[in-house]
Structures are given as structure tokens and as C-alpha cells.
Design a protein around this nucleic acid. Structure first.
Lengths: 226, 226
DNA sequence: TGTCAATACGAACGTTCGTTCGGTTCATCG
DNA sequence: CGATGAACCGAACGAACGTTCGTATTGACA
């Protein structure tokens, strides 16, 4: 009955460790952290430099001692987010068995974990990418393309080897990537789902999308109990 | 090589029929249409009333002859989007066979078609929902909840009847809903995929996620050729 | 023909925006 | 001790913001 008064939040998370540790120290880190929270909740245009200054406990002018502009602040966050995503998926692919199904499982689990554990960073990197001027964003777009290509290549190789049963690798890439992306918006500290459980289930969903039977040896088993 | 200069678009569509016909006539319709394009591309806070006025060929002050505020402009668009989505999925469910698998196929195809054919409306209704003040948004949140509940109920009934093989109805709802939602962002006028083809494939993906065999009679067959 | 309501307009209101400027503090180091 | 440079601040800049005001135009109807 209180549905008309509660504000509508853009994502569920509030207090997760929102930045990889290296970037969250000192005044510069405080600014980044405040900008991350405000950009995630209100969007780039919806958060002012004064808001960011207040949230990080310093004056607006001081932000310009650490970042040349609001755009560069966004660029740093979007860059960190994409780099972290690419780092996680790449590492996961290096550490798993070299079969197509196992690689898809590794990729999807890393993908999902990223969007759950660093949901604010993921939301900003995805939803505010359009606000980033190309001359400042630059290399981020390449990283983004590479991450998509990673998954699509896995799927195409599985199709070519007869491991997967589907017609269109691109549609499957979009579907699997998209369902993982959305995790960042609904996963919160109070979710009754564990990150491991979500990653496990989504990996299973991904293999099912690709036409892999539940009896396949690479199909993820039940995760450990609570 | 031109990757550093091209602006990053938020969604791919540009010229689709962006509003249900009834709402797009007269000056009021021109304003709504301009606001839809600008909100979709730049976000609510990123588009100014002057931008909307210029795009619709009238003066800023005149907008206030048709809408009491910028918030109400957004509320109307978000409301139309959610109403249209709920109308499409509800109609689809009424017209299909009453088996769980056929109902999921009908829902997912309507869901996907909505996000492809009215991609701007879908982007605004989803990505800008957080900018809508609760006292102005109001009933939209109920519609949103109902649409999610529609799909989750279908899945739960299929699970109870033994038609689907999975553990968690909510995770499947989130995954299937999320992958369809993302279609609005990448589907464009120049996509080499047809809307029918995408809807067909995503319905198939959905049934696979739910553990339905490819040989099940409700599994969608190949759509008609080109 | 006179009146009313709807639609449109140019100009301006007060506020907030991103950013800059001049100056202060303070630890570091020759 | 004096110099240096980074971090920080209060105050202000011009521009852009959502919105309001007073007025002009118009078509429908008495």
C-alpha cells in the first residue's frame, strides 16, 4: 500500500564493495566511489559535481585537482568496469578445461559474478556508456567488442565441432550476454540468492540455450549447500 | 579506424514507428514523439525541454499547453510503454493453446516483438523508470509487476505439472525476461534479423532454459522462409 | 458579430549546472 | 630556514536548466 511513496531504485545493491580495491583509496578514491554510487542511481546527467563533492566530503573545486572534468570521471569508471569484466572472463577461460561447453560455463559464471559482485560498476559501464564522449571513451569500446567476441567465438567453435545445436551464434550470444547483464539491476545485498547459485544456474541456462543435454559431463552440477 | 569519432548510440533503432498510432497525432503527438526519441537516446536528464521543443518544431512554452511538466511527459511515455507491453502479452496468452509450453512461447514472442518493434518506447520505459517520481508514476509500477508475475506464474504452473525441469522459477523468469529486454538495445532498422526470426529463436531459447526437449510438440518450428 | 476556450508565442524568472580563479594550508626537501 | 608543489577551499563565472507570464492568433459557437 506504500507503493506510491517509495522511490524507484535503478538497481538493488547499496553497500557492496563497489570498486576493485586498488582504485578506492584516498581522496581520489572517495571521489570515484561517490561518483559511482550517484551515477549508478541517478545517471551521469542526473548527478551533479556538487552532489559528488558532498557525498565524498570535499568541495566541488577540489575534484578538479584529481580529474580534469566530469566526463573524465565517468570515463575512469566505465574503463575500470570494462577492464575488470574483460580481466575476469579472460582469466576464467585460461583456467578451465578446453572443451566448448566448459568454456561457456566458465565465461558465463565470470560474467554473472561480475554483474552481481560489482553491480554498480556494471550498471554505470553499461547504462552510462552513451554519455561518454567518443574522444574520451576511446579504448573502452574495443574492450567491449572483445568481450562480446569472446563469447561468440566460443559458441561458433562449439557449433563447428558439433557440441552445440543451434542456428545463429549471434542471437545466442546476445541472449546469454543479455540475461547476465540484467543481473546487475536486480541482484542486491538482500537477495535470497547466492552469487554462486546464480552463476551456477545461469551457466546451466546458457548450455541449455546452446542445445547441450543436461547429461553432458560439462553441465554444472548442484553447487554446495548453504 | 573511425571508432574514436563516431558517437556511441544507446540503441540501434532510429526510424521505427516509435509510438502506438493513437498517441502520435497533432502537436501533442509531435511533442511525445520528439520526447521519446530524445529520452531514448540521451536519457531523461540528458534531454532538455528546449531540445524537445526544437525537435517537435514548436516553442518551449507551448509544451506546457499540453503537459504540465517534464515529469508528466516522461510519465506518459513510460505509461504507454508498460500498457502496450501488458496488452500484447495478455492478448497473446488469450489466443494460444492452454499448455504451459505454448503459453511461454506466446509470452516470449510477444515480449520480444514489443522490444524490437517499439524499441525506443521499451528503452525509455525501462531505463528511465528511475527518473519518474513515484507520485507521478504510480500505477505503472503495478503494471510492471504484473507483467513479471505473468511469466513467473506460467513457469511455476509448468513446473508443478512436470512440463518444465528446473529448480528456481524466479531465476528463469529473470533470465528469460532479461534476454528479451536487451533486444530493444541492439535491434535496429538495419538488423539482418527479422523480428519474426528473433521472436522464434528466443521462444526456443526460453523453452530450452525451462528444460523442454527440442522434440516437444510446442517447441516452435522454423519460421517461414524470406 | 461578439465571445470563449484552446493553442501558440517571445521574453523573462530564479535556480542550478560545470568549471575557473585566487589564495591558503602543509608536508617535503635542498 | 626558505622554497616547492600538491591538496584543498570559498567565491564567482557564464551558460543552460525547467518553468511562468502576458499576449496574440484562431476556430467554434451563441
Amino acid at each position: 500500500m506504500n507503493s506510491a511513496t517509495a522511490p524507484v531504485r535503478r538497481l538493488a545493491a547499496t553497500a557492496t564493495p563497489d570498486l576493485p580495491e586498488s582504485a578506492s583509496q584516498g581522496s581520489r578514491g572517495a571521489i570515484l566511489n561517490a561518483a559511482l554510487h550517484l551515477f549508478a542511481e541517478h545517471g551521469f546527467e542526473g548527478a551533479s559535481m556538487r552532489d559528488i563533492a558532498t557525498a565524498s566530503g570535499i568541495q566541488p573545486a577540489t575534484i578538479y585537482s584529481h580529474f580534469p572534468s566530469k566526463q573524465h570521471l565517468l570515463a575512469e569508471l566505465v574503463g575500470i568496469g570494462h577492464a575488470e569484466h574483460y580481466r575476469r572472463t579472460s582469466t576464467a577461460l585460461l583456467e578451465c578445461q578446453p572443451t566448448p561447453a566448459a568454456q561457456v560455463v566458465a565465461f558465463v559464471q565470470a560474467h554473472v559474478r561480475m554483474h552481481a559482485e560489482l553491480s554498480m560498476l556494471a550498471v554505470v559501464a553499461n547504462a552510462e556508456l552513451h554519455a561518454l564522449k567518443p574522444e574520451i571513451g576511446g579504448h573502452v569500446f574495443q574492450l567491449r567488442e572483445q568481450s562480446t567476441q569472446q563469447l561468440q567465438t566460443l559458441i561458433e567453435r562449439g557449433m563447428a565441432g558439433g557440441d552445440f545445436a543451434l542456428e545463429d551464434a549471434w542471437l545466442a550470444t546476445a541472449a546469454i550476454g543479455g540475461m547476465g547483464l540484467r543481473v546487475a539491476y536486480w541482484y542486491g545485498d538482500d537477495s535470497d540468492q547466492s552469487v554462486d547459485g546464480i552463476a551456477h544456474t545461469y551457466a546451466r541456462f546458457a548450455l541449455r540455450i546452446l542445445g547441450v543435454a543436461d547429461t553432458h559431463p560439462d553441465m554444472p552440477r548442484e553447487p554446495n549447500g548453504p
